[in-house]
């Protein structure tokens, strides 16, 4: 007798089995390996690691931009990465926010945010403008809406990257190093906004978003994220909740708990 299939709500949002991650700019390099990791819908993960630990490459793999070197990675039960049109609707349930935004430099912030809507719904400039304007307003980006990314500060570019990823109303959002290189006021904004996304934000019709965030330290995520993991020495170590992180005795975790690392 075959075992019963899990109920739809039991399908993990992200599931990695024995996955190895390559570097985006040099596929021959292995950044991490033997990753076994499951993200359930509604989770709010922080994956911390020092610079160069491979967080960005790991998130790119999770975001479906590059395939695993080995192992299996499934997103809501579908093998990733997805490039075929037939499985595109599954792919679009996932949003990826790059460190620094990685906006399209020849498009204004408003055009950047509108592009995914226009492409996937076949809309003209005017038809997508209202939805884009709502997102820009929701993220306090209106004053820069009609500027090119090069004319806007780093923190705002990053925020526009978030607005663009939210345009298609994703259910799972991966955010690369949101607190890196931004000022304290923006740090506060990001933490509050991500919390709201996790609980359900009006911009996404109140539907809670599953979050995976990378970070250079742990302390600022206390009281925000619910699951924590550490990326170090080419391994992903799942630590558990904040209690386990705070109680950890080993140096690798303590190092990311000290105040000195809280510069992002």
């Amino acid at each position: 007798m075959t075992p019963p299939l899990p109920a739809p709500d039991e399908v993990p949002a992200l599931e990695m089995i024995n996955v190895a991650v390559g570097a985006l700019h040099d596929p021959a390099i292995r950044v991490a390996e033997n990753i076994n990791w499951t993200v359930r819908p509604g989770d709010y993960w922080v994956i911390a690691g020092l610079h160069g630990a491979g967080k960005s490459d790991f998130l790119r793999l999770a975001g479906g931009v590059m395939p695993p070197q080995q192992g299996q990675y499934r997103f809501f039960g579908e093998p990733m990465p997805i490039f075929e049109d037939a499985r595109l609707p599954t792919r679009l349930r996932l949003g990826l926010v790059f460190d620094g935004g990685q906006l399209f430099n020849h498009l204004t912030l408003a055009e950047n945010v509108a592009l995914p809507l226009r492409y996937h719904r076949n809309l003209g400039h005017a038809e997508a403008a209202a939805a884009a304007a709502e997102l820009l307003a929701g993220l306090e980006l209106e004053p820069w809406a009609h500027r090119l990314p090069g004319a806007v500060g780093y923190g705002w570019r990053k925020r526009a990257g978030l607005a663009r990823a939210l345009a298609l109303q994703p259910e799972v959002l991966l955010v690369d190093n949101p607190l890196g290189g931004v000022d304290p006021r923006q740090v506060h904004w990001w933490l509050a906004f991500l919390d709201q996304l996790s609980r359900g934000h009006p911009l996404l019709r109140g539907r809670p978003v599953t979050l995976v965030v990378t970070a250079a330290d742990f302390p600022r995520w206390q009281g925000h994220a619910r699951q924590f993991a550490l990326l170090r020495d080419r391994r992903l170590r799942v630590l558990g909740g904040w209690g386990e992180v705070a109680a950890a005795r080993e140096d690798a975790v303590r190092e990311l708990l000290t105040k000195e690392t809280q510069t992002g």
Binding site: L92, F98, F104, Y119, H120
Partner: peptide
């Protein structure tokens, strides 16, 4: 130069992440 810059600055990845086929776009 345009496409090389787009590739080098990660715009092409950003297209892929948004489900937009870079060859098509």
């Amino acid at each position: 130069i345009e496409l090389g810059t787009a590739r080098a600055t990660g715009e092409v990845e950003a297209l892929e992440a948004l489900g937009i086929d870079p060859v098509h776009y």
